[in-house]
Amino acid sequence: MLLVSVVALVGGLDQLTKALAVSRLTEGEPVELVPGVLDLYLLYNPGAAFSLATGLTWVLTLVAVGVVVAVALMARRLGSRAWAYALGLLLGGALGNLIDRLLREPGFGTGHVVDFLRLPRWPVFNLADSAIVVAAVLVVVLSFRGVGVDGRREPGRREHADAAADARPSSEQPSESSGQPSGGPTEEDRRG
């Protein structure tokens, strides 16, 4: 199943890269990877993105559990490859950070998330965070395009306009031959 493969890939890469960061980087000492663009910078984050909710680690853990349960429930209706990628990225990222919250110091449910990628003027992040952001973009695009989780397309604005035109009385409908509303003057009537 595609969803499971994406979850395993994202979660596995996230945990592997975090293990490498912890074993090879020193907290607070940057390693320039791409000058002026990307540093490796080890940080243990007790909060969410932008260091929000640093004192609410248990709440963030519960939110992550909620996301995992919600995605698992949605996955039962899955009928779209694009949604499988989106939900797989979201679930893999959520699980990657949840593992940190459950298993890392200072303790179960209050663990700090390992972050190690730093861009200029941006908070330090990890692969799980990146997967969650990509998933959010995919969800917005799929929703905007009217693609449901089950793979069915929901009517878009264009289809709604066409449906409204079909619902008008026939006297207001344009005739197929002249482009004029039915019952209105034709070219022959105007000449006549």
Rank of each mutant, 00 (worst) to 15 (best):
F144T: 13
V114S: 03
T57R: 11
R168Y: 12
T57S: 15
P106R: 02
W83S: 02
R153L: 10
L127V: 15
R77L: 06
A161I: 14
S178P: 00
A128G: 12
R24G: 13
V34N: 09
G111R: 04
V4T: 09
G88R: 06
A135G: 06
V4P: 00
D14L: 11
G11K: 05
L89C: 06
R145C: 11
D100Y: 09
L138R: 06
G107V: 05
L102I: 03
N97Q: 08
V137N: 01
L52N: 13
V71I: 14
D150C: 07
D129A: 01
P185I: 00
L42V: 08
V37K: 08
A84L: 00
G184L: 03
T57M: 10
A8R: 06
Q15S: 15
A49H: 02
S171K: 11
F125P: 01
L73Y: 13
F144Y: 14
A86P: 08
P174I: 10
P174W: 09
P120I: 01
D166K: 15
Q173F: 15
T26P: 01
F50C: 00
V7K: 12
A53V: 07
V139Y: 04
E154R: 15
V63Q: 03
R190T: 03
A70L: 14
G93Q: 02
A48I: 04
R191M: 00
G111F: 04
E188L: 09
D166A: 15
V59C: 12
I132Y: 05
R118E: 00
A75N: 08
L142E: 01
G184M: 06
P46H: 13
V71R: 10
L2G: 07
Q180F: 15
V141F: 11
L62H: 06
S170N: 08
D100G: 09
M1K: 10
R158L: 13
G109W: 10
A82Q: 03
L43A: 04
P46Y: 12
M74N: 02
L2W: 14
S80D: 03
F108Y: 12
P185Y: 04
E176P: 11
V141S: 05
S175H: 11
G12P: 00
D150T: 04
A8H: 08
R152W: 06
L91H: 11
S130V: 04
P123Y: 05
A164M: 04
L60D: 07
G36I: 05
L87C: 06
A94C: 02
L87Y: 13
R190F: 12
S182G: 02
G79H: 06
L9S: 13
L43P: 01
A84T: 07
D166Q: 14
A75V: 08
V139L: 09
P30I: 05
R104S: 01
V134I: 07
L40K: 07
L62C: 15
L98V: 09
V139S: 02
G93M: 03
L16H: 08
R158F: 14
G156K: 13
T57W: 10
G28M: 07
N126D: 00
W122F: 15
R81W: 08
L40I: 08
V139P: 00
R152E: 07
L127K: 06
T110N: 07
V6S: 14
G192A: 10
G93W: 07
F125L: 01
V133Y: 10
A72F: 05
D189P: 12
F144H: 12
L56M: 14
F108L: 11
P169S: 12
L73G: 00
S5P: 09
T26A: 15
N126S: 13
S175A: 11
M74R: 12
L40Q: 03
V69C: 05
